[in-house]
Design a binder for these strands. Structure first.
Lengths: 354, 354
DNA sequence: CTGAAAGCGCTTACAG
DNA sequence: CTGAAAGCGCTTACAG
């Protein structure tokens, strides 16, 4: 139907994809008609539609998303900002976002800020320039102000699993850390523990601040001593997440402590590895997939209604007791003697192989 | 300098960011001049530059990347396609890509294809429409044709860690799987193993095909029997990657086998967890960060020179012997009796907690 | 039902 | 050194 040479001429170097103009010319219609066909909008006569479709197939025409985005004031891209792509928790979060999105669209940009303030700001700049439709923040550095900058630029933002923002324009869905820490503290108290220690990541990140505060409150409520700067006297280690817990488990055992006989260890997130027989980590199960799905739902609603995402939601957690927590008795040897928890950056990448 | 109301008017609803036109008007210059200032191109008189800069700061102007991309025929975005975001191997790969990129630019889109042919095609379509500058493929389904489609559309592609393509326009950097499997086979042979089994992911993916073939060749060279469909008689399990190895370690021990006394288990990738004292997995160390860095370097060079990425490179690996492999003797109980390796999808997400 | 025209926000020769 | 104009590839009222 369309001379082969015309088509070939279009893409002789493989670098000049067909445009709507090419398709219109080859099909003998106007660009508006082609546009109507590809968008399925308005009614186009059957014969014209068929002709256009044929040319599209032959030329392998694909609408240029850049031009469309410029015209439509929307890019069909959302960003998921993680602290640490090595943590499977974020994989689950991303899966939840995918679930909430309709097939293939919009495209999700997963970007790793490493919770580094400079990187966060650079990323924020880039996302604003690119005019992403929305941003889901998986974690951010303490007191990071960039979510508000995004909001200033009309981009809806939802914090997923990293607390709430002081800015009312920022939505949030998070685990109920206060409840979770009470569960942990009650569990440890029942096992006889009276002095515990919290192990967070090396960097300052909002989610860890939040959990640290929650454990402080819960411990105080039970009359348990919480060691924050050093583990002296502690018989249990409460970790910000599973990755940190698993690292500390390793460090403790290499230093000669027995888990759980000497020291109990608790994680957070209940990542799949926690259930591994050799690890068997007591951890807090929170539904990361649901977290992602809810955050995405909020974002998509905000985008559709051209407003900020402002909802705030809290998800209940469940304590999964496994083999790293056990009873302790008064007078039992406790931590101290120079041992320090491994305040690792909770990226698997930073851990040096032994 | 610029009346406050003018600025406020620009962004009254927080949804109309300043454009180059606004800046030009407020600074009393032409759009060309503003463009010259933001791009740092050509010389602009100091006073004009200062005026423009001031207005940019006051209005919080950020050039619209969509418009720029449309004009410049480049988006400053590259995509990294992974099989499985839950595998820390890809986090390392991504880190390598980041390392090779100059600060903050270009933006990397990390997309998970799940090695599902339909998802791969949808993703490919989306990336072409969005005119990404280049694509790094972390893994893909067996015989996936989409890299060639990307190349057809003038997008340079590099396969990172998943073999080479039959298409000469596709670049590749990969681990030397043949060498690695020889290392493994030699190690097992020396320990007395004569029958082994390969455990891959449930899905068909190129990297696993490649490793399966490599282990077949290596086993044949040593006169070792390789069981492919069932593990009967095997005393060692060679796994496609660490995640699969760790899952099988769990499954074996839950089924009552002792590792390494009854069965030896070998992983691939040497992810950080392999070095954990409780896991202590014998694995093949390959530098995933280097893999990402090299792939990115190839892609950036190709983009800059407006050509395909065609280089092919092989990285040597090293066998790290740990506690999951041990000696076996003839007559020793072996696998079989209905036990099957866990051919898990190697995403941590799919594993059901026990 | 169809097409000519304007415009999204930039950049890039090209006059002046 | 500076600005007017054209154009990147689309979509969207609006005539006909």
């Amino acid at each position: 139907m369309v001379p082969r040479e015309w088509i070939d001429a279009l893409r002789s170097d493989g670098r000049s994809p067909a445009t709507i103009k090419d398709v219109a010319r080859l099909a003998g219609v106007s660009r508006s008609t082609v546009s109507n066909v590809i968008r399925g909008s308005s009614t186009v006569a059957d014969d014209l539609r068929a002709r256009v479709m044929a040319v599209i197939a032959e030329t392998n025409y694909r609408p240029d998303a850049r031009a469309r985005a410029l015209r439509e004031r929307t890019t069909g891209m959302i960003a998921l900002i993680t602290a640490d792509t090595g943590n499977p928790f974020y994989a689950s979060l991303g899966l939840g976002v995918e679930e909430a999105a309709t097939l293939g669209e919009p495209l999700m940009i997963v970007a790793n800020s490493h919770c580094d303030p400079a990187a966060e700001l650079a990323l924020c700049d880039s996302l604003i320039s690119r005019r992403v439709d929305g941003v889901i923040v998986g974690d951010l550095s303490s007191n990071a102000g960039y979510p508000s900058i995004l909001a200033d630029n009309g981009i809806p933002v939802v914090l997923a699993g990293c607390g709430v923002s002081g800015d009312p324009r920022i939505g949030a869905v998070d685990t109920d850390d206060e409840q979770a820490m009470e569960l942990i503290i009650d569990h440890l108290f029942a096992l006889g523990h009276r002095t515990v220690c919290f192990a967070g990541p090396v960097d300052q990140r909002a989610a860890a601040d939040r959990r640290r505060l929650a454990v402080r409150t819960a411990a105080a409520g039970r009359g348990i001593v919480l060691q924050e700067d050093h583990p002296d006297g502690a018989t249990a280690l409460i970790c910000h997440n599973d990755l940190i817990a698993i690292d500390n488990l390793d460090a403790l055992e290499r230093a000669g402590w027995l888990v759980p006989d000497d020291v109990s260890v608790v994680g957070f997130d209940d990542t799949p590895l926690a259930a591994h027989r050799r690890i068997s980590l007591t951890s807090v199960r929170c539904d990361a997939v649901a977290l992602g799905r809810i955050a995405a739902t909020q974002i998509f609603a905000a985008i559709a209604e051209r407003r900020h995402a402002t909802e705030r939601q809290l998800l209940e957690c469940e304590l999964v007791v496994r083999g790293t927590t056990g009873p302790t008795t008064p007078g039992h040897p406790s931590l101290g003697a120079g041992w320090r928890p491994v305040h690792v950056l909770d990226t698997a990448l930073e851990r040096t192989p032994h």
